[in-house]
C-alpha cells in the first residue's frame, strides 16, 4: 500500500499541566488514504476541532506524531486547505477579491490575466458568477460558504479539510451544498476530510465514517465503510438496504454511547398538588390561602 496522505501515530493532545491538565484526544491512530472521502462524526466537546487543527498544523500533538505524506507536519501549508464553519471571509472584500487574495498569495508569478481566469473558473464552479462583485454582507449563508469553498479550491490543495462546513446553514441549503461539494469533489477526487455532527451528512458524502467518542480523552470509535455507488441520490438511498444497515448500526452505536452518559435522576421528589391559575384571573388567590 502507498504512503497514506495523513497518518496519526499514537497521538494524544492535552492542554495545561498538572492539576489543570485536560486531555482532549487520547491515543489516536488513523490513516487517511489518497483520494478517499473520510467523515469524522463528533459532538460538542469531543475534540474534533483539535483533531482537524492537527491536520492543518495549527495545533501540534502533545504526544505521538501526525505525518503528511510520511513527513511530520510542522505548520500550516497551502497543500492542506481548510473550510471553516464561520466562512472567515473578509467583509470589506467582494467575492472576487476574497478569492483573489488567496490566489495572488499562492501564484504570485502568474500573469494577471491567467490569475483572473483562474479566479473566475472557481467562482463559476460554485455558481457564484452573478454575485462575484457582491460583498459578504449581501450574501446568504449558503453563498458565503460557497465563496469560502471557491477560495480554498482555487489554491489547489492536495487535501481538503472541512470543519463542520454546513453546520450554520438551514436544512435545504445544507442538502444542496452537500450535493455541490460532492460534485466538485468527484471531478478531481482530492482527498477530503469532513468533520460533522450529522450522521446522515457523513453517510451521504463519505467513503468511510469514524465516530469520535464524546467527552474528555476522546478516542476514535469503530470505522464504518460506506459502500454506496456514486453519484448518490438522497431519495434513492432511503430504500437502499446497505444504507439502512450502516445507518442503523452507526445510530445504534451512538445511542449506546448516549445511554452510558445518561444523568442520574428520580430522587422520588413529590410534586405538590396544586392547580395552576392563569395570571389576571387570580384575584382571589389570597382567599384560598387563608382558608
Amino acid at each position: 500500500m502507498s504512503t497514506p496522505i495523513i497518518e496519526f501515530r499514537n497521538v494524544s493532545k492535552w492542554y495545561g499541566e498538572g492539576d489543570n491538565k485536560t486531555e482532549v484526544l487520547s491515543n489516536i491512530n488513523l490513516k487517511i488514504e489518497e483520494g478517499e472521502f473520510l467523515a469524522i462524526v463528533g459532538f460538542t466537546g469531543s475534540g474534533k476541532t483539535t483533531l482537524v487543527n492537527m491536520m492543518t498544523g495549527l495545533v501540534s500533538p502533545s504526544e505521538g506524531e501526525v505525518l503528511y505524506r510520511g513527513e511530520p507536519i510542522t505548520g500550516p501549508a497551502p497543500e492542506r486547505g481548510i473550510i471553516f464553519q464561520n466562512y472567515s471571509l473578509l467583509p470589506w472584500f467582494t467575492v472576487y477579491q476574497n478569492v483573489a487574495l488567496a490566489v495572488n498569495e499562492i501564484y504570485p508569478d502568474w500573469p494577471k490575466d491567467k490569475r483572473d481566469e483562474h479566479i473566475r473558473k472557481f467562482i463559476e464552479m460554485v455558481n457564484l458568477t452573478p454575485a462575484s462583485e457582491k460583498r459578504p454582507k449581501e450574501l446568504s449563508g449558503g453563498m458565503k460558504q460557497r465563496t469560502s469553498i471557491a477560495r480554498v479550491l482555487a489554491t489547489d490543495p492536495d487535501l481538503l479539510l472541512m470543519d463542520e462546513p454546513l453546520g450554520a446553514l438551514d436544512a435545504l441549503t445544507r442538502g444542496n451544498l452537500q450535493e455541490e461539494i460532492l460534485k466538485i469533489w468527484s471531478a478531481n477526487r482530492r482527498t477530503a476530510v469532513l468533520i460533522t455532527n450529522d450522521v446522515d451528512e457523513g453517510i451521504f458524502m463519505a467513503d468511510r465514517i469514524i465516530p469520535l467518542e464524546p467527552g474528555e480523552k476522546s478516542g476514535l470509535g469503530p470505522e464504518y465503510k460506506i459502500e454506496l455507488a456514486r453519484p448518490r441520490n438522497k431519495k434513492a438511498l432511503n430504500t437502499d438496504p446497505h444504507f439502512k444497515k450502516v445507518r442503523t448500526s452507526i445510530l445504534n452505536y451512538l445511542v449506546q454511547l448516549g445511554e452510558a452518559a445518561k444523568l442520574e435522576r428520580n430522587q422520588d421528589l413529590a410534586l405538590p398538588d396544586l392547580e395552576p391559575i392563569q395570571p389576571g384571573t387570580r384575584s382571589f388567590g389570597w382567599l384560598r390561602r387563608a382558608s
Binding site: 495545561g16 489543570n20 491538565k21
Partner: peptide, 9 residues
C-alpha cells in the same frame, strides 16, 4: 503546590 503547573503562566 501546583506552582510548577503554572509554569506557563
Amino acid at each position: 503546590p501546583s506552582l510548577s503547573g503554572m509554569g506557563a503562566k
